[in-house]
Design a protein around this nucleic acid. Structure first.
Lengths: 353, 353
DNA sequence: AATCACACTCAAACCGCTTTGGATGCCACA
DNA sequence: TGTGGCATCCAAAGCGGTTTGAGTGTGATT
């Protein structure tokens, strides 16, 4: 059932039917109701392909997922972000199109999205420092919103981000207040913008108390269980091990916990841990009592907000860039406690079983 | 730059240019080369919207993600499956469109995909027993491939699945061979088809050795860290606790490990654990030495295969349904070992700190 | 020299909708 | 009575490709 058939059936022109359905004023209310009723009765749905061609709009938003062939990591927060954004899209009649492309064709993927006209806008994921994709998208001339920020880019752009610096600063202060003086930072990859900001927060908090950060207590790697384990293990085996850890994600936090417990130590008593919790639906940080003390910020909310922003920009291209800085809450869980009294050597626990 | 402009520039008709670019035989090779060169030079990309309308094909595959509003779980394997499928789509010039919809509008989402013509086919995720979506998709008349199977559906359909029954059967046998007699099953939700098959494998293996499964050693819940922890905790606190666990996922496996270690026990020595490892990129089961002994099957591969199958069906609608049954490998890691000698009470380890 | 097959190329219709630029009829007002 | 304004409705022209159904011109065949 298409527009023309429906029009014939109603004894009206396609023009009128189209206008009736799309709420244009120049059609009689009784006619409109007749049309609406007939459309519903015949289960008429306008063909999206035709709408897109006629209006020149794609009614779709693109997300480009570069697939690093070296380290084939699919971002674990991705699913939840997408879920949030997708809700917004569905509600507004937009499609979400995902382009999974090899790393090196990412630029081409964006260009194609624009020149083949398959998206009205894009979301830029996982920005790095001086991210080259921001000038690229400007050049291409497609509306976009960045999830995160890119230090060192002077072009204006819209973004949604968590206040990572502040979150890690507060978390560090919290540990310092508990008496921890040697705090290990198990950070994400530090060419990623968010990781840099987190480190800045950590360093600033230490500096504010007159402490100089110890490079051997700062690790940076992908946020996997394994690398969390490795980083924590190395630090715990130092002559002067940390009494607390600040960890970039729930997943690396589990690796850190493994390292701690493998050494016969107890998380929350012997060693404190604070993680950043993206509030992933399949990785809840406990229900009533949080397992980890955490800086929490829902990445799904971020997805919703980013999508809203983007649709706004698409609908209203004139306006300047918009920003949303989300604050993370500090959730107190079972993984933190006062620093062990004696800063002298710890009760010699079994090392490396 | 569109077809007509390009044609004018070349002094050819749009027809010829279109045919030249699409490899039709009735165009002179020299002409074709001229056209190709000009297209490249002017960076011409055909407008997808127009192609879609003209050909009546969507050149897109839909994935519907129902968002359970009750327990808002986004499937953690989803990201990796999508990554695999997406590779295939990109390579074949197809778009992947994701519909994130509230649970109750899932049916409508499929209908819209078809009637608005925005997808040529769909992938059905996470099938349940007697899944109603299979008859639905048949009725709608849209090509589809199921990731998994749906017991109790008599309609024919194409699927890609892991041999879950066999995987869990082998894992159980492996534990039995190590002398474990009480094996806890920490399963996924048992209205999900894969979970049922896994339980069947487990039960069958026990039965083959003349063992009757103990209901108190069989748990079924969402595959989160928390529920893994809860299930394992409950079983470990039984008067006759298990000496081994069979666990549905890496994530719940981490919860199981937490429960074990919290009780002062050591995984791999006191308690053996086998997980099912979907080989998620952000949840690698160790690198050289696997952390967990596991039945492993890459969900990303499954995505690739499912996408291939679907594109095949779309291109060639006549053929009957196709199936791919993937076998999981049994990976020996550090989490399994012989059952503790004395089947009498275990060395009384500190319980519930 | 007429015929035919063949290799190329093109004009025009079409996909299903939106949107521009009239028509038409009716009523009010001068 | 003529004119203008308003409320409705419609024909037709896009949108940018694909595809059908003809033409052409050439060389080979008869």
């Amino acid at each position: 059932m298409n527009l023309k058939e429906l029009a014939t059936k109603l004894g009206l022109s396609p023009t009128t039917v189209s206008r009736a359905l799309n709420g244009y004023p120049e059609v009689n209310e009784t006619t409109r109701e007749r049309v609406m009723a007939a459309a519903k009765r015949h289960n008429y749905r306008p063909n999206t392909r035709a709408i897109r061609l006629a209006t020149g709009r794609a009614l779709a938003v693109g997300h480009v997922i570069p697939l690093a062939t070296r380290h084939e990591i699919v971002n674990p927060i991705f699913a939840d972000f997408i879920a949030g954004a997708g809700e917004t899209y569905s509600r507004n009649g937009y499609d979400m199109i995902l382009s999974v492309v090899p790393d090196e064709s990412e630029e081409q993927a964006y260009r194609d999205l624009k020149s083949r006209g398959s998206a009205d806008g894009v979301i830029l994921h996982a920005p790095r420092m001086q991210d080259s994709r921001i000038p690229l998208l400007h050049e291409i001339g497609i509306p976009f919103v960045v999830h995160g920020r890119a230090t060192g880019t002077d072009l204006p752009y819209s973004w949604v981000d968590v206040n990572n610096r502040r979150a890690f600063q507060r978390a560090t202060e919290f540990l310092l207040d508990l008496g921890h003086l040697r705090i290990g930072l198990v950070n994400g990859l530090e060419f990623m913008d968010f990781a840099i900001r987190r480190r800045t927060g950590y360093v600033d908090a230490l500096a504010a108390r007159g402490l100089t950060p110890d490079p051997s207590l700062m690790a940076s790697d992908e946020m996997t269980e394994i690398s969390g384990y490795r980083a924590a293990s190395a630090m715990l085996d130092l002559p002067a091990p940390p009494t607390a850890f600040l960890v970039a994600s729930m997943i690396s936090g589990m690796g850190v916990r493994r390292a701690i417990e493998e050494r016969g130590l107890r998380m929350g008593r012997d060693i404190s841990v604070i993680i950043h919790d993206d509030d992933l639906s399949y990785m809840k940080n406990g229900d009533d009592v949080p397992i980890f003390t955490a800086t929490r910020s829902s990445v799904r909310d971020a997805g919703r907000i980013a999508a809203d922003l983007l649709l706004g920009i698409i609908a209203n291209p004139g306006q300047g860039p918009e920003h949303r800085l989300l604050e993370a809450e500090l959730i107190i869980g079972q993984s933190t406690g006062p620093a062990p009294r004696l800063s002298a050597p710890r009760p010699s626990a079994p090392r490396k079983a």
